[in-house]
Amino acid sequence: MRRLSWFNVTSLTLGFAFLYLPMVILIIYSFNASKLVTVWAGFSTRWYGELIQNEAFLDAAWVTLKVAVISSTLATVLGTMAAYTLVRGGRFFGRTLFSGMIYAPLVMPEVITGLSLLLLFIGIGLDRGVLTIVLAHTTFSMCYVSVVVSSRLISFDRSLEEAALDLGASPFDAFRLVTLPIIAPAVISGWLLAFTLSLDDLVIASFTAGPSATTLPIKIFSAVRLGVSPEINALSTIMIAIVTVGVLTASLVSKRASLRQQQDAQAAERATG
């Protein structure tokens, strides 16, 4: 018998207005013809045109994308391994330290992670560039992946794996043929999380990037430090559009997958029952 009161409706409306208005305003003003970002001077796609011709931004976007794809893929492999070890690995030497190292980066301020990695890279004489950003991003995002994947591993029925082992599968085959398909949605959302974390990251990238490689957030940050710019509005709009489409698609796909899984489970129940 829950019913929305006026108070609920008002707080939901105001709350979502607060969450979305700033971004809506940003998107509207990216189509502003005027260079003065606060004065509306008619509709124009001028800033998108200038953005496409801005090679510094395009280069940075390319570096960012490269770093995000490589680091999120590495992070997914490492994070899944770590999750599997933590959930199924039983006891091993230094387990507490290991789980500590998995959880600590989640709450570590970015300035500290960035600073410490930079000091390491300088200490071992590694030139800063794409490689160092990839190493840095992989390290913090593998922890997020491992948290996402281990929550899925904990909730699934272990007897399925044991059945495969009893039926003669090698542990690797059991993982590949039984465990992996079941945890796949978590692995995919882990990858997506790692990917967006890498795309987004400014602080850690600023510490670990060298003059040879600049990422998009670093470029955006140095541009907006001087104030609002219409080109950045256009760039932000593109990024918001990509994320929105991506998240909506992912949620539709996962909804359909879980629906199919339900149907399969029902069919299996009917067949065995």
């Binding site: 969450l19 940003l26 932000s236």
Partner: peptide, 25 residues
Amino acid sequence: MLVILPFWTSFLIRVYAWMGILSNE
């Protein structure tokens, strides 16, 4: 979904969006 969506959007952009709203002009 509406609460989670901004979380996926770039942090930097969400902060930047307020610069245009709060400035003197």
